[in-house]
Nucleic acid binder design. Structure first.
Lengths: 213, 213
DNA sequence: CCGCCGCCTTGACCATCGACAAAGCCCGGT
DNA sequence: ACCGGGCTTTGTCGATGGTCAAGGCGGCGG
């Protein structure tokens, strides 16, 4: 989508030439930290997580990818990130070197990718104040609002959380227990309704957004 | 440097055509959050900070720019970040629209910028685990090591901190007092030597890197 | 339908860090 | 050399969130 949508004619055809469809099932990895970064991809459906493992063994999720997002890093010989599917997912996979070569022949593809990468950089920076300064309550509220937005959930509609409590904790830099406690508190305060382990509905998105800051 | 170094011939000439030299003195802003994002630049000398102001009034530094770094965001009508000089700085300033147009005529410039933006994204993500999970001690050690590295400081050489204690706190998501306390502790433990308010020397960079994790 | 495993919740305790307050020091201007 | 303002340091206290520990529950497979 990201690449495909914005391109026409020869560039699009060339992209299809080097691309290959791949389906990931929930939990399956697309690439591991330290592997040669041989492939990039375009996420067609599903949700992926991009995470880094620290020296102390802790895991930090540094990005969540939704349909249309670009997967992987260009111009890097080795991958620093581990990428895995949070739900079943469909990808268009491209050999990294072939994609880099394509950018030379089809500059429009390069500009599109530059535009998206700039946007991604802005998104990541949007999370930095959250992770660095915000209280647990605000981080969790922000994540809920963000997941609803990026999952294109209609207002007041229940949706399926792509992240387990443990994954939410990894994304927000919190302990699992802290996430659980605040989720329970949100429910008791009538801000959200939980159904089963993964189902959630934002009862008061406005107030949640306020709490998120 | 970033752009200039990697380009040749016509592209380089075109870049010089639309560029203009500008000098910022320490503390001076290059652009404010909310302003129309009319200009980008290439940092020639000095250090800049990229920061965001939160709803609660708190400030988070989301990036530090060193010579050679690209300044600003392409494809955004309005700037979300406030950019200011931490030291006297020299820039090559380009009108944003003209630079975007140049990328169409000179694809090599676009690829170079894409490569650097990808690298920047990786750098920013490298800080996320730090900000989200690491203790104050580790964050400060990491910042010291990083400043020495990016400032191209020779091993065991004293250097001038580009950041005040307050700016360090803003970059790390800590209170000024916490930064001060740990800096003092590092000094007492023989890890660093402080001279004046801004002078510092890393006496045990290896151990500092270990503390950083 | 039942049982089990893994995820989630809840509780108690404690370390770390932020807030507030006050004192000290560096540095530039006079 | 003196002085003043701002930055920095130091102290105290309380709250937030991590850790450890135990218990509950949902969902899947048999």
């Amino acid at each position: 989508m990201a690449l495909c949508d914005g391109l026409r004619g020869a560039a699009l055809a060339a992209l299809h030439d080097i691309g290959r469809r791949r389906r990931l099932s929930a939990g399956q990895a697309f690439g591991w930290s330290g592997d040669p970064a041989s492939h990039c991809a375009n996420l067609v459906s599903g949700v992926l997580k991009v995470s880094r493992v620290e020296a102390d063994g802790g895991v930090q999720i540094v990005g969540l990818l939704y349909p249309g997002d670009f997967v992987g890093m260009l111009f890097a010989e080795r991958s620093v990130d581990t990428i895995a599917a949070l739900s079943d997912a469909d990808l268009c996979v491209y050999p990294r070197v072939a994609l880099e070569a394509l950018l030379v022949r089809h500059p429009a593809a390069g500009r599109l990718l530059l535009r998206r990468t700039m946007a991604t950089l802005g998104e990541v920076r949007r999370w930095m104040p959250m992770l660095a300064r915000a209280r647990a309550e605000a981080r969790i509220a922000a994540l809920l609002v963000d997941m609803a937005r990026r999952g294109e959930v209609a207002r007041d509609e229940a949706f399926h959380l792509p992240l387990s409590r443990a994954a939410m904790a990894e994304a927000l830099g919190l302990a699992v227990e802290t996430v659980s406690r605040h989720m329970t508190a949100f429910q008791q305060d009538g801000l959200i309704a939980l159904s089963g382990l993964r189902g959630v509905r934002l009862l008061d998105p406005v107030r949640l957004a306020q709490i998120a800051g």
